[in-house]
Design a protein around this nucleic acid. Structure first.
Lengths: 344, 344
DNA sequence: CTGAAAGCGCTTACAG
DNA sequence: CTGAAAGCGCTTACAG
């Protein structure tokens, strides 16, 4: 393996000049640069990153804690997210270092350790929880990080974040169902403890009110994000609608999984999603396009999210540019319309 | 941030002794060790890994290329696998570095680069393809790697691998269906180009023959791993069975996704999985336990796989121990029985 | 525009 | 059992 010194000898310059050829080529006379570049190629020289990192004390590595899921649950777009995150990091010459850590505050020593030993420069946080203690802790330790997802219900968000406007996403879903003729639109949610859920639910509620649609008894909180729960909640909604003579004709689900449960219950009752009842999910996971009828779903802009995360983490402190500045980005999701809400 | 030197000064020993306290504590007099340890804790000293790596030229980082999937496809157990891989790596003091690369041979310069710049010590390969060119290339370059999955149809496997005995998994599934009374067991497969598929199919075929069950026209190759394809293939099987007066009563699917398609088609025809037809999948993905009836599925021992991968990659060249030695591990999967094959 | 020197924070033989 | 010295391969002020 060639070293700087060998390249320097080969090109008959000092090591410093080779280093400059790599890191500040404009400082070299074009002729010298050419000669050095040729030697680099000839010797197939690749700079040793450990030596560089030792000197600069930047490793160009970003830590990401692999979430561990309770059995039966899964992050259906996690591989997409990781791929996007890697790609975004690589565009800036960085990479993602994976690690595991206990949930919540108990995991913080792991973060501290990775940073102190200089295995990473900083962290991308995801799976943000309501009152997530990690953000405040990292900020206090002056460990660089950026969060995918807001810390809900705090007065101020500690540190930079990127998030998706869930309320707007659900609002779009409600409007879409309204435009396709639905007038009694229910919402399948998660427990109240989730700030994320409250945000999305608020989008549903507000939009229903705007459109003068009913909301009473139409929001159901499923205790877990499981297909069965979605089916159960849908059954309850359909039964109540029948009894009252006001059948539900639209269902906005807070996740694709719950939406899948809704689809299953409809099928079980001989109803067709997109015909009698319009159904929408959230996340546009791979499953959405694979069931039939395919699931209309709110898609988070994953590539954009990844790009912004890396930008916030690695850019020099933004100069408060009113347009792109600041350290908070709320991105707009997009409704992907398929058969479950609009037959044809 | 404390350095070795500072700790040495604080403990009134040489830096070398502090280093030894960390890396070879047995060399120190118990008393000295105690004193040094105290200083380390007091100063909250964490060794700089870049300095260490520069010196030892080992980074304790393992590269893993995040697969990119065609839209609508997903690796349902990828998050489980990554979690297991991370955990296994961390047990040996290592971590996983994620990167992206073009598929096949085109990606090799990326691997080479990561290794040459000393960002990683070696690689874990997955998504192994038939005739995968990466293994041979890496071996030739003397870049350490281990493969999850065999390179099929080659005379010899280049380099170490861990794989799951797919044939045995499918054999178990067939036997289970047989034991629950099924006598006409079909197989839902992938295209012939997949060595993995041929292996699993062979397990089905051999076991059927052993049990004197029919196999003719009972293996269907779905062009893609999608729910719709599984449903379509199942429809074809059921139709053919009806016509011939010999109804299919068992379906072994090569993946959970295809099995899900089978379940859907059964439901659409008013049949119940586990009653009229027993169905099994492969992978025991999160979806398996979430549909209803829940899906019987062949589970790959993910934690074991991860542990073996890390062991093969990082252990000193095994001394040809007849028991655990060698660089090839074929692990046995396990059938997880649920309602889709056995009601109640 | 180019080069000689110092130093990033460790570990590794080697002496004592 | 402990320490003085060299060196891993870079980059960074600083001179020239």
């Amino acid at each position: 393996m060639a070293t700087l010194k060998q390249v320097a000898a080969h090109a008959d310059v000092s090591v410093q000049t080779v280093s400059n050829a790599l890191n500040a080529p404009h400082r070299l006379k074009p002729d010298t640069l050419r000669r050095v570049t040729r030697s680099i190629e000839l010797l197939n020289y690749k700079p040793n990153r450990n030596a560089r990192s030792l000197r600069t004390s930047a490793v160009e590595l970003i830590g990401y804690c692999v979430p561990s899921w309770p059995h039966g649950q899964t992050h259906l777009v996690m591989d997409q997210f990781l791929h996007a995150l890697c790609t975004a990091a690589e565009r800036t010459g960085r990479h993602i270092l994976l690690f595991t850590a206990p949930t919540g505050i108990d995991g913080m020593p792991v973060y501290d350790d990775l940073h102190a030993r200089r295995l990473v420069d900083g962290f991308v946080l995801s799976q943000t929880e309501t009152h997530d203690p990690r953000h405040g802790w990292l900020k206090e330790q002056r460990i660089p990080f950026v969060s995918f997802g807001r810390v809900w219900k705090e007065t101020t968000q500690p540190g930079p974040y990127v998030d998706v406007d869930g309320a707007a996403g659900c609002a779009t879903a409600v409007r879409h169902l309204y435009e396709t003729g639905r007038r009694r639109i229910a919402f399948l949610s998660w427990p109240r403890t989730s700030g994320l859920a409250e945000d999305r639910l608020a989008g549903w509620r507000t939009t229903c009110k705007e459109l003068e649609l009913p909301t009473k008894d139409l929001a159901i909180r499923c205790p877990e994000d499981m297909i069965d729960e979605g089916a159960r909640a849908t059954a309850k909604l359909l039964d109540a609608g029948l009894e009252a003579g006001t059948p539900v004709d639209g269902i906005v689900a807070i996740s694709d999984i719950l939406a899948l449960g809704a689809l299953r219950e409809l099928t079980a009752r001989g109803l067709t999603a997109g015909v009698e009842v319009g159904v929408t999910g959230f996340d546009d996971s791979p499953l959405a396009s694979v069931v039939s009828p395919a699931l209309t779903s709110v898609r988070q802009p994953i590539d954009r999210i990844a790009t912004e995360l890396i930008a916030l983490l690695t850019d020099s402190p933004a100069p408060a540019d009113p347009a792109t500045g600041g350290t908070e980005r709320l991105l707009q999701p997009e409704l992907v319309i398929r058969g479950s809400s609009a037959p044809g």
